[in-house]
Structures are given as structure tokens and as C-alpha cells.
């Protein structure tokens, strides 16, 4: 019988055993996180869902109007324009980001001289504040004085008007988004380095060339991470595109860069059509939820062990 047993016996004579008290203390430490998650995400999501079925202008109290908001937004051309632009943006920017991150990871993963500096250089543009990044690119894309067009001009290439031209405004936003691949690259470098070198030696002995060991070894082993990145980039792109649009184009020219988050912002805070904004958010939320669900199913079918 040692001291621990005595202490244990003493403690268990209280109303709560030490085990239960320990458990209670752990839940106490979790309280801020859980409370914050409920107050700042759970409750707001519920409020959004509720408001989607009301007419509300932030001044008089909300009035129930059933599915009217959804009927209205589905009839508005602007909503479909924003949906189309958002889909177009996600369908181009996210795959470009994943592809770019993968190519950079494959290039920069060997621990050679200077590799860390090169990685840092790539990572840099991903850590810049959104506002700063948007303002820098607003300058770079300046059709008259911007360095990009001066460079194109001196090479005798055509100089697009970028953000001023409806045809090139959205592609310009895609270009600048596609260059922010630092986090994806770091993740894939880590994933690539986690593949045992013996696999590659074995493949080489079997006569596999560089392309073959990439195609049949690296790529399948990286696939779960690529999928994860793709989902992340689609979801982040869905709202991350707000700041560049707000700072650089204001949704224009015309409605060429009106993406869903920007339209939602305008509806809610510009026109105080809060019910309609909430309906749009509900649609966006549902679409993203479906996408995540589908990819999750798909990733599970790859028999990947994702037990955390």
C-alpha cells in the first residue's frame, strides 16, 4: 500500500471520484472552444437558416414569408451570374492551385542547398495579408503603368486591360489566386517526404523510369492529400475571393467579377435585403456541404486510413 493508493482511496470517498473530477476538469478546459464554436459558428448558421425564410431589413422585426426568398433569388439573373462566376472561379483557381502546389512540391522537396530559401520565397505570397496582396496586384494589373503590361509591351506582346476589361477581369483574379500555393506546397512536401525512399529504390531496380515512378508510386500515395487540398481550396476560394473583389473591382466591370460572397455582402449590408442574403448563404452552404460529403465518400472509397 503506497501513498497513491491512500490518496486514491481518500479521494474516492468524496462524492465524485478522482476520475470523474478529472473528466470534469477536462471538459472545463474545452468550454471556451465549444462555447465559441457554438456562439460564433453554430448559432450564426442557425440564424442564417432561420432568416432565409423571412423578410427582414434590420429595422423592423423579421416577417415569416416561407420559401419566397428562394423563389425570388432563383428568378434573379444577378444571382445566377454570381453562381456562374463563383463556379468558374472555383473550377479554375482551385485545380490550378493544387497542380501548382504539387509541381512546386515535387521540385522543391529534395533537401538540397538553398531548398529552404526557395520554399520560403514561394510561401511568402501566401502569408501576405489579403488586403496587401489585393493592392499589390491591383498595381501589377494596372493597364497603363502596371509592370505586367510594361513587360508584355516591351516583349511586343498584346497588353490586356486586365481588371478593366470584362473578358479578362475574372481570369486576372484567377491568376493571382493561383499563385498563392505556399501552404499546399508545404503540405505536399511533407507528404512526399513521408514516402519511404525504399519504395523509389525498389521501383528503380524494377526498371521504372522517373515518369513511371511518379505515375504509379508518388501520385497514388499523394492522391488523398491532393483531394484534401482541392476541397480546401474550393471552400476557401468560395469566400476568400471576397477581399480581392471588394478591393480591386467592386464586382465589375459590369458584373464580370461579381462572385457569390460579394453579392451576399451587397445584398445584406448594401441593400439590407437580409432575408435574400440569408437564402443565398443557405444555398452556398448546402452546395459546399454536398461537395465535402461527396469528396469524403470518395476519399473513403480509396480505402485511405484517416483515423485521427
Amino acid at each position: 500500500m503506497n501513498l497513491h493508493h491512500v490518496r486514491g482511496a481518500l479521494a474516492s470517498s468524496h462524492r465524485f471520484g478522482p476520475q470523474a473530477r478529472h473528466q470534469l476538469a477536462l471538459w472545463l478546459l474545452l468550454t471556451p472552444f465549444l462555447a465559441g464554436a457554438f456562439l460564433l459558428i453554430g448559432l450564426p448558421a442557425l440564424i442564417t437558416f432561420g432568416l432565409a425564410f423571412t423578410r427582414y431589413d434590420a429595422i423592423s422585426p423579421p416577417v415569416w414569408n416561407g420559401l419566397q426568398n428562394f423563389a425570388t433569388i432563383f428568378q434573379r439573373d444577378l444571382f445566377w451570374i454570381a453562381v456562374r462566376h463563383s463556379l468558374l472561379f472555383a473550377a479554375t483557381a482551385a485545380p490550378l492551385q493544387v497542380l501548382g502546389a504539387m509541381m512546386l512540391a515535387l521540385l522543391l522537396h529534395p533537401p538540397r542547398r538553398g531548398a529552404k530559401l526557395y520554399r520560403a520565397a514561394v510561401y511568402l505570397s501566401s502569408v501576405l495579408p489579403d488586403v496587401a496582396y489585393a493592392l499589390i496586384w491591383l498595381w501589377l494589373f494596372n493597364p497603363l503603368y502596371g509592370p505586367i503590361n510594361l513587360l508584355l509591351g516591351s516583349a511586343g506582346l498584346p497588353q490586356p486591360a486586365w481588371l478593366v476589361d470584362p473578358a479578362t477581369a475574372l481570369p486576372a483574379l484567377v491568376i493571382m489566386a493561383a499563385l498563392r500555393v505556399g501552404e499546399g506546397m508545404l503540405l505536399l512536401i511533407a507528404a512526399r517526404q513521408a514516402i519511404p525512399g525504399a519504395y523509389f529504390q525498389a521501383a528503380m531496380l524494377d526498371g521504372a523510369g522517373r515518369w513511371q515512378s511518379f505515375r504509379y508510386l508518388t501520385l497514388p500515395l499523394l492522391t488523398p492529400w491532393l483531394l484534401l487540398l482541392l476541397v480546401r481550396d474550393v471552400v476557401l476560394g468560395a469566400h476568400g475571393a471576397f477581399t480581392p473583389v471588394y478591393i480591386m473591382t467592386g464586382g465589375g466591370p459590369g458584373y464580370a467579377t461579381t462572385l457569390l460572397p460579394f453579392l451576399i455582402y451587397e445584398e445584406a449590408f448594401g441593400h439590407l435585403r437580409i432575408g435574400q442574403a440569408a437564402a443565398m448563404m443557405t444555398v452556398m452552404f448546402t452546395a459546399i456541404g454536398l461537395l465535402v460529403g461527396v469528396v469524403y465518400r470518395w476519399a473513403n472509397r480509396l480505402a485511405y486510413d484517416d483515423d485521427l
Binding site: 450564426p44 442564417t48 451576399i264
Partner: peptide, 23 residues
């Protein structure tokens, strides 16, 4: 709890701007 944390990670911030403002 890990699943909850991952789910929270995937929540688009723009979906909560408006209700947070009201709260």
C-alpha cells in the same frame, strides 16, 4: 471532437458575417 474541429475548419467565413453582425 476532431471531426467537429475539421467541420469548423471547412465553414466558409462569409456564411457567418451577417448573423455575427446581428449577434
Amino acid at each position: 471532437l476532431v471531426a467537429l474541429a475539421l467541420l469548423l475548419l471547412l465553414t466558409p467565413a462569409s456564411a457567418v458575417w451577417l448573423p455575427r453582425y446581428l449577434l
